[in-house]
Amino acid sequence: MKRLVLALGLLACASAAQAQMPASWTAPTEPFQIADNLYYVGTEGISVFLITTPQGHILIDGAMPTSAKPIEASIAKLGFKLSDVKVLLNTHAHFDHTGGLAELKADTGAQFAASAGDRQALESGKYIGSEDVEAFDFAPVKVDRVLNDGDTVTLGGATLTAHVTPGHTAGCTTWTFPVTIKGEAHQAVLYCSTSVAANRLASKAKGPQYPGIVADYEKTFQRLRSLNGDVFLAPHAEQFGLVEKRARLAAGGPNPFIDPSALQKTVAASEQAFRQALAKQQKAAK
């Protein structure tokens, strides 16, 4: 009965949320290996990553409200057991990255760890500051472990570090972790996001999306400029050139996901877009 109620809730959220979303966000795609124990199991347009270990696996993000079953199918297609997923993580509490988490948690029995700043959104299933917009809703998911900046998650020899980079959401979390590619050690960085998206930075009528959001963006840009990583990953496929890199990887040669300059290029472009959006919203607010 609980599973039926959960499924009905997911469908209700999905019907509204997916109405005007890009088709690629829900389109299934073949899973593939990026590094020795790092796999892509997301949809065509929204990333979900699987980190495998001898003691169980870590799954990062849940994509859209209807994406749980395709994610589970991708895990199985790679030859891994769903029951071996022991930890669920999240980059940020927006429906297009958390929509499948409640179902994935129920199906795997995994423990869910997420930032303190996003806990309210995750457990309410709401876009904080836009709680009245039903299209942003997703199935609530209970946080089993609350993470703060600098906390680590360890399983089977794999250790991920949480870097809280707020703005896009109050608890937006960028993850770093070591990976091995062809016998060489690399540092992966899963960038949370710094886009403005639907956020209000300045609004005379409603106020900001949440108190202190502009200051959070400013601190996050500064923080990300000091972060290092040469395997760049992101929540949306277009944010890290997934389609092109995947094709190049399949063709052989150097692993295209190794790109030491990608993070800083992305952050610089996003900061410029943020300043333009802030100026536009501030002008409108006057």
Results as ranks from 00 to 15, higher is better:
Gln18His: 15
Gln18Phe: 10
Ala19Gln: 03
Pro22Arg: 12
Ser24Glu: 11
Thr26Trp: 11
Glu30His: 06
Pro31Lys: 00
Phe32Met: 09
Gln33Trp: 01
Ile34Glu: 01
Asp36His: 07
Asn37Phe: 03
Val41Trp: 02
Val41Gln: 07
Thr43Ala: 04
Ser47Thr: 01
Ile51Tyr: 08
Asp61Val: 03
Ala68Glu: 02
Lys69Pro: 13
Glu72Arg: 15
Ala73Asp: 12
Ile75His: 00
Lys77Met: 04
Phe80Trp: 11
Phe80Gly: 09
Leu89Ile: 00
Thr91Gly: 10
His92Ile: 00
His94Phe: 06
Gly99Ser: 00
Gly99Asp: 05
Gly100Trp: 05
Leu101Asn: 05
Ala106Gly: 07
Ala106Val: 09
Ala110Gly: 11
Ala114Asp: 08
Asp118Ser: 05
Arg119Ser: 15
Leu122Pro: 04
Tyr127Val: 06
Ser130Val: 00
Val143Gly: 15
Val146Leu: 10
Leu147Arg: 01
Val153Glu: 12
Thr154Ile: 08
Gly156Lys: 03
Ala158Phe: 06
Gly167Ile: 02
Cys172Arg: 11
Val189Asn: 13
Val196Gln: 11
Ala197Thr: 11
Arg200Ile: 04
Leu201Met: 09
Ala202Gln: 06
Lys204Gln: 12
Lys206Arg: 15
Gly207Ile: 13
Tyr210Gln: 02
Gly212Thr: 14
Gly212Trp: 11
Ile213Cys: 09
Asp216Ser: 09
Thr220Ile: 04
Thr220Gln: 14
Phe221Gly: 03
Pro235Thr: 14
Gln239Ser: 06
Leu242Cys: 07
Lys245Cys: 03
Ala251Lys: 15
Gly252Cys: 07
Gly252Asn: 03
Gly253Lys: 13
Phe257Asn: 03
Ser261Tyr: 04
Ala262Pro: 05
Gln264Leu: 08
Lys265Phe: 10
Thr266Trp: 07
Ala269Val: 02
Ser270His: 13
Gln276Arg: 08
Leu278Ala: 11
Lys280Thr: 15
